[in-house]
Every structure is written in structure tokens, then in C-alpha cells.
């Protein structure tokens, strides 16, 4: 199964941390360590992270439980999957690709900022691909339609609760800046949230 999915940027700032199994060390020690190992790898290396200190970091007991760290880098982001032996190594590389493509479809030309401001949305998309550490769906079209269905359900629910709102909480290209007129007004008055 997949034990965790981590996204961080090239400076090591986490953009998404998802642990499917409890880990014996806190995410705040694991993530920086994985980042330092990933970021020091020379270009052109393979996508499997191996380091002598990794076993100890992930708390591995024996060979059968060995965890593998598979990662892929896109522009300014590193996508890291920690998986065990029942996942195929090359299959995981493809799955990362599926995840990125799903993000790309949802956000239309995804970039790091989308992940920054819609971290909840990224979680929702991931939950259409992996549930509880088991791969749920790999077909991109299926994923996309489920993502859209869930997003529009949230949008409808939001709209029903806030008649004045303009689509906050829905998925869409950078509509985060749009605020409710009331929110916009209050922002103007108090200066809170000014960019």
C-alpha cells in the first residue's frame, strides 16, 4: 500500500502532507529529511530514493516491510510517494504522473500557487485517486469526473447556504481572489487581507 504522499517545493516548503499510516516519527522530521535527500541528488538520477539513513528514518523492521521512496519532480515541486512492497515501482511512477495530470485538469495548467491556495482542493483530488493508502482509481477521465462531481456538489451546497456568494469553494482556475461582496467590502474597510 501507499504509506504517504508528500508534495514540497524546491525550497522544502511542504505543499501537501498526507500520511495513510501512522508513522513513528513526526512528519516534521521526516519531510525535511526526505527533502534534503531528494534535493541533493544530482540531475539525471533515477526516481527511487535510496540512502543508508532512510531505513532508520522510516522505522523499518525487516526486509519484508521495506518501504520505498518514489519521487518525481515537476518544475518547482517534488512529488514523493512512500510505498511498500505490494506496489509496483514503475507503477508508482505512473501513478504520480496520473496525480499530476489530474491536478492539471482540475486547475488548468497547474502551478505551485494553485497548490498553495487550494490545499483542500488538492486533498480532494488525491482522495479520488487514493483512499486509505489503496489505489482507488487510475483512469484519468474517471478521476476527473469524480472530482468535478464532488466540487460541484460543494459549490451547490455553498451557494445554497450563501446566496450572495460567487463560487468560493468550487474548483476553477484561480477564482480564489473572488470574494463575497460583503467580504470584499469588509476587506476594503478594515484593510485586513489586503494583498
Amino acid at each position: 500500500m501507499i504509506h504517504s504522499v508528500i508534495i514540497f517545493n524546491t525550497s522544502g516548503v511542504p505543499r501537501l502532507i498526507k500520511f495513510y499510516t501512522p508513522i513513528h516519527k513526526s512528519a516534521q522530521t521526516v519531510v525535511p529529511k526526505i527533502y534534503s535527500l531528494v534535493s541533493t541528488r544530482p540531475p539525471g538520477s533515477c526516481n527511487f530514493l535510496e540512502a543508508p539513513e532512510l531505513d532508520q528514518l522510516l522505522g523499518q523492521k525487516d526486509v519484508d516491510e521495506k518501504l520505498r521512496v518514489v519521487y518525481r519532480s515537476y518544475a518547482t515541486l517534488h512529488f514523493v510517494f512512500v510505498v511498500d512492497l505490494s506496489e509496483s515501482e514503475l507503477g508508482m511512477l505512473d501513478l504520480i504522473q496520473v496525480f499530476v495530470e489530474a491536478l492539471d485538469r482540475a486547475f488548468e495548467n497547474v502551478c505551485e500557487l494553485d497548490l498553495v491556495f487550494h490545499f483542500d482542493e488538492v486533498h480532494h483530488i488525491l482522495s479520488e485517486i487514493i483512499q486509505g493508502g489503496i489505489v482507488l482509481e487510475t483512469n484519468l477521465d474517471e478521476i476527473d469526473s469524480s472530482v468535478h462531481q464532488a466540487a460541484s456538489a460543494r459549490k451547490q451546497s455553498f451557494a445554497a447556504a450563501n446566496p450572495l456568494a460567487l463560487g468560493v469553494g468550487g474548483v476553477g482556475p484561480r477564482n480564489a481572489g473572488l470574494q463575497t461582496p460583503l467580504g470584499w467590502l469588509t476587506g476594503k474597510i478594515t484593510g485586513v487581507g489586503a494583498r
Binding site: K18, P22, D120, H123, H124, S127, A150, A153, R154, K155, Q156, S157, F158, A160, A161, G169
Partner: peptide, 17 residues
Amino acid sequence: KYHLKAVGYLAANQSFG
């Protein structure tokens, strides 16, 4: 409300052990 429920479940998934 579904959009609130989604927030609640997300928070639970991330923080409950």
C-alpha cells in the same frame, strides 16, 4: 451542509489518529 462536511472530514483525515 455538504461543503462544510467536506471540510470536517478533511480535517479529521489529517488530524485524527
